[in-house]
């Protein structure tokens, strides 16, 4: 499919990459109980790409995503989103940075229980003080199959529906980069397919950049590229992945791990 979003064409094509990490390091805990979750990760992702991040449990995938999205602060290294460097300011500053550029989809949805589907979707816009185009919100939700659920609360929805609301919430703010941490982790294979299709569509149709953590080789096969992470370090990459190739690679990822460390 072509990148034919009318909205996109008004924007000047940015020269910089959508995401760049340079020697990003993150350590949890202190002294003898310290865990190095990220150990000098350097990577760059172009605009309009769909990347999956895979690796064993505890390899630092969530930490990577959170550092890249400005939800957490790396100990050292540089994070640049859409050409702008994440500053070392306070939470308020980081939040304002994220609002226009970054969408995040969580495994646990993180929708607000007191708000309806429609209200949850427009919450980021409200918080950013941006104008809410009701028609567009309805359009997005309808395209995600939630047109008849606008007034429902998250508690009245299935897991797949909640995740679609979370994706709608990320899409409506029109971010440059969407991060998704195991977005299909709690879904059956059909809902998972729907969600993955949506993410891929936002890349193909709207030219957004998607970075997704997953444990599922089938989910990873929706991406253009798979990055493998082991012990907080990048441990390879696979372009145009198929589910089988990913599974094969994952199985061998364990072999390469230096023993003990």
């Amino acid at each position: 499919m072509l990148r034919t979003g009318p909205r996109r064409q008004q924007d000047p094509e940015p020269a910089a990459e959508a995401l760049r990490l340079v020697k990003v390091t993150k350590t949890y805990g202190s002294a003898d109980s310290a865990v190095t979750a990220l150990d000098g990760v350097t990577l760059g992702l172009g605009h309009g790409t769909f990347t999956a991040v895979m690796g064993p449990s505890g390899s630092g995938k969530s930490t990577l995503l959170q550092c890249a999205a400005g939800l957490d602060r790396p100990d050292s290294g540089i994070v640049r989103v859409d050409g702008t460097e994440l500053t070392g300011g306070g939470e308020a500053e980081l939040t304002k940075f994220r609002r226009g550029r970054i969408g995040f989809v969580f495994q646990q949805y993180n929708l607000l229980e007191t708000l309806t589907v429609a209200q949850n979707t427009v919450l980021p816009l409200k918080l950013a003080g941006r104008r809410v185009e009701r028609r567009r919100v309805r359009e997005v939700l309808t395209s995600l199959g939630l047109g008849d659920r606008l007034g429902h609360r998250p508690g009245q929805l299935s897991g797949g529906q909640r995740q679609r609301v979370a994706i709608a919430r990320a899409l409506v703010a029109e971010p440059r980069v969407i991060f998704a941490d195991e977005p299909t982790g709690a879904l059956d294979s059909r809902s998972a397919r729907d969600v993955l299709g949506l993410l891929r569509q936002s890349v193909r149709v709207h030219g957004r950049t998607v970075v997704m953590v997953t444990h599922d080789p089938v989910a990873a096969s929706y991406a253009d590229t798979v990055l493998f992470l082991a012990d907080g370090r990048l441990a390879g990459r696979l372009d145009a992945p198929t589910a089988d190739a990913v599974a094969e690679r994952l199985a061998h990822l364990g072999d390469d791990l230096p023993a003990g460390v």
Binding site: L71, E91, A92, T95, K96, R98, R99, F104, F106, N110, L111, L112, E113, T114, N120, L123, P124, L127, A128, R169, A173
Partner: peptide, 15 residues
């Protein structure tokens, strides 16, 4: 948790 969800949705601590 609720406050955390608000913050992740883009609320500053001030908000």
């Amino acid at each position: 948790r609720e406050f955390g969800q608000q913050r992740l949705a883009g609320a500053t601590p001030g908000q």
